[in-house]
Design a protein around this nucleic acid. Structure first.
Lengths: 204, 204
DNA sequence: ATTTTTACCGACCACTTAGTCGGTAAAAAA
DNA sequence: TTTTTTACCGACTAAGTGGTCGGTAAAAAT
């Protein structure tokens, strides 16, 4: 552990900068040299710590993306009473982060899922695993919401989870082109509206 | 016109194959040589007809993507009586195409919007123009639906349009990883549910 | 019949890419 | 103190990349 400190620190620096550039320019459009240049490190350093570009990206997924998705999209809604309120707040926060910070990890996820789709199945699988955890988490909080009387019993929790994630990913795709504030406002309004219909008696 | 026939035919062949490969492998991950090889054409032929890779892609957007989005996502809902029914059918068709054919143009659009985002503003703008036309069309049919008594007057048409496009783009992102049938089913179910709430009296 | 244009060929260029490899200074282990 | 390991350097390679350019055969225009 102790003796690995320097190693870990350098690897972490590379991962953070790597994710930043991969996110900004895309994986295939970002070279290792780009990352190295912005860190003032050499090829040797990179291939000392990582086996390949792919291996490097996988380590980013497992060390940075997984954890951030957990802390931003999963933990905030876990164990909350009212699922709709919890999800609404969580999405609102995430979209606000997206607006200012321009790197919320729900979108990082969907962005990379798109990019690697059918181009790199290894990476795709790692990304889809995260998506599945997110989905399962939404489903379970909705199910619990049924017992607690917040969610109509006829609601299809899996369907709702899919719909929620879909719309979130979609609106984030649109937000990157600007007009974020307006999009966020419109999106949240419709989300509330949708939730209303799931709490009422008439449900599909 | 007549004398341009051969020219047009070759350009069209290049565009069709180009779109296929760009869609499958991504723009930055597809070389002109890849396209030329699969057409048994040479560099000379390419640069005789197009000025650059970017110019080539723009021509694909304007000749193929625009038209397909029109014929698949815009015209089918134009002039229909009940907006919800029209949109529902249209989306259902598009997602079915996606399932079998694996290239529906609503997704082609969102896919490329993601890829070019912040990487090529010229192309991004062409793509966003198409998105805007789609959105405007949805808004106007929803507005008309209000006059005709299908849509609740308190509904925010622009918000609904945004939400619809977002969710559609999102679900398509997820569909490419497989499990299409199930995703489509769940998505359509929730869409109908959402529409129900917009037709009723209580609206946001 | 001659000239010009069209549509294409493919060698070539400058540059970028992921990845290799021999070397090395400093730190840790012996 | 000597040896070994760690963490890194940077020149190099082979395989692409987008794009240029001189050439050419067939068709069209004159």
């Amino acid at each position: 552990m102790d003796k690995n400190l320097k190693r870990m620190a350098t690897m972490h620096r590379m991962q953070v900068t790597g994710l930043e550039l991969f996110y900004k320019n895309g994986y295939y459009n970002t070279s290792i040299d780009d990352i190295l240049k912005s860190l003032s490190l050499s090829k040797g350093a990179f291939y000392y710590h990582f086996q390949s570009k792919e291996d490097f990206f996988v380590s980013i997924v497992q060390n940075l993306i997984v954890r951030k998705v957990y802390s931003l999209l999963i933990e905030p809604i876990e164990g909350k009473e009212d699922p709709f309120q919890a999800i609404e707040k969580c999405f609102e926060n995430a979209l606000e982060t997206a607006e200012h910070n321009e790197m919320d990890y729900g979108f990082v996820l969907s962005n990379f899922i798109s990019e690697f789709n059918r181009r790199n199945t290894v990476i795709s699988n790692y990304l889809m695993d995260i998506y599945k955890v997110w989905e399962v988490n939404l489903v379970s909080i909705l199910q619990k919401g049924k017992s607690d009387g917040f969610v109509n019993r006829h609601v299809d929790s899996e369907g709702v989870a899919t719909y929620l994630i879909s719309s979130y990913m979609g609106v984030r795709t649109l937000m990157v082109q600007g007009n974020c504030r307006n999009l966020r406002y419109k999106y949240m309004q419709q989300l509330r509206h949708y939730f209303n219909s799931l709490a009422q008696k008439e449900a599909v």
